[in-house]
Design a binder for these strands. Sequence first.
DNA 1: ATTAGGG
DNA 2: CCCTAAT
Length: 662
Amino acid sequence: METLVGAEGNGEGKFEESRIHKTNSTFSSPNLGADPVVYKLVRVDGDGKLVPATDDELMEVGNLLADDKIEMHLVADAGPTGRCIFNERSSSGMPKLESSEGLSNSENAEADAGKLNTHLESIEEMLTKAKQEESHLLACGSPDHSSTYVLVDGQCSDQHDTLRGIDEKLQSEIPLQESDLSPQSLSKSLNNQPSIHGECSNSSNGLVEGQQSTSAVYTSSKPEFSRLMGEICLDNLSIKELHETFKATFGRETTVKDKQWLKRRIAMGLTNSCDVSTSSFIIKDNKLVSKGGEGSCNKEAIEDQAVKPVDGSGKESSLNPGSKMEDQQIVSSERLRTCSKDYSCADEDPLKEQRNAKRIRKPTRRYIEELSEVESKEHGGKSIASVKNLGLGLMSSRSNTRPVRIASSNRITLRLDSLGGSGVQIPYVSRVRRSRPRKNVKALMEFHPNGIGMAAKLVKEAVDVHSSEPNRESEGIVLKAGSAPEQIQQQFVVEPEKDNHFSEVASIEQGQNMEPKNKDPSVYTPDDNPATVRAVKGGVRRKHHRAWTLSEVMKLVEGVSKYGAGRWSEIKRLAFASYSYRTSVDLKDKWRNLLKASLAQTPPDSRMGARKHASSVPIPMPVLLRVRELAEMQSQFPPNLSSSKLTGSAGRNVNETRSGYL
DNA sequence: ATTAGGG
DNA sequence: CCCTAAT
């Protein structure tokens, strides 16, 4: 847990580092965005001067931070925005940074202390959280901890007490902290207290902080999956492979040998960086042993406090020049914060755990849902189950994540590929789709009539779908382009038959066409976009509702043959369990159409296929014949036309069907 | 709740 | 597909 940031000294210099103890801290404000705190990286030269970090250093740091989420700035001096804190080591002496911000001396420190404190707290909190998560993950079995958080700060290890005192003082004096902290959740959720850490008077700390904000939830839920996946996939890779992957992922090489670090980083990159990243560097004496990119890191350190003191000079054990950073995603609303108020030491495990639990739990669902809505519409996994799982807080199984069952084999294939293909897919995984929130969706839609964001996604999805389309086609018949996407999605979606509504919703989420409620075709919902797309591609399509795929039609026919026409609900249940969006009424209507089609077609001539330009799906002749047969049998249909001839031509026996039927 | 039929 | 009416 300690993270630290280090500034590093030049060759000659010493850098300072700061480290955090494992304290827990509270969170930084939720609104970092508003008033983001930036830390700059500085190194202290031997003579005590501060030197800004070099570009390289920065880059590395940046990389470490990885995500965009964190910004780092370098500053020569304490700088303006950033707050750097330097601790001077006892010996080294803090330089003269008199910058207002940095305070080397304890006295001054107080002034800053407030800020620092706040920061520290936040950092700590994050750390704590990270830790927790890690443990969580570990518990789960996943090796990785990718959690994310970032932050770093340095502190003197030595004097906690002292610091503490300071903190308290600061706190009392400055109410800021709270303000900084996120209000909402904090209050509720916790009581935890930030631990305190002050900075050491002697030593300087460098703090680096990223803005952190992550939602606990986020991390806990989705990320976990992704992490797991990542882990899993990455686990088997050799370092070399990891390096390659790293390069591929980030576009730059890395010399880091730490597997864990690499995995984490990669996973993070793959997951969009949302979650986690961790990096650490250690500096030894004046040399930087590891840096984000190159240094070696301690993975252990990452986890918690494993950091070991490396610095040469110090005897202070505490100073370790290392810094580790993790990033987190920022989620404003949901971040977790521990709380600001508690003073109790964070260290207590139990306490932490409790907090943990709370945190995880709460945000998770909501967060996920929201996130999902916005983010994913990617596929239609079924999500209810998955969501639930997520909600639990862990990922019990990946399998759950991907609940999609598909009626037709094709689709499945597609999916599997993506999953199994390689570890690389992780990102995909991360976005778990939740089907559930139809309400939310609706709301969402309402809010965003235009649904720009959604639209974009939808479009994207549509595209994706198309890509997948081929598979589908392979199945059998080619549908018109326009329809394809939908179909595919449908399959993905799969829902239990139960509610159509849900299913519809689901579809919506997926980005396909959906109709919000019954009919709102007027509004242009996201659907429209897809529709548009389709239109462009292929035939014009009606806005809503999906075209029937051949496989569906076949199923329908089969169902009718088995259960008889009219038993729509039965058919729906039995044969269309997977296709939730088809209602019994739909089945009925479709059947009606089929009959009509079959009727019409038969007489004229059997031409090759039934395909023609039927409006949407070309129905294969055999199918029509069969339909006709069934109808005939059931007397729905006038038997007059000779089926035999057609039948014969088709080469398929309709009779069979019949037999099945009655 | 399902089904049938019309729009 | 949607909606309504009838069971």
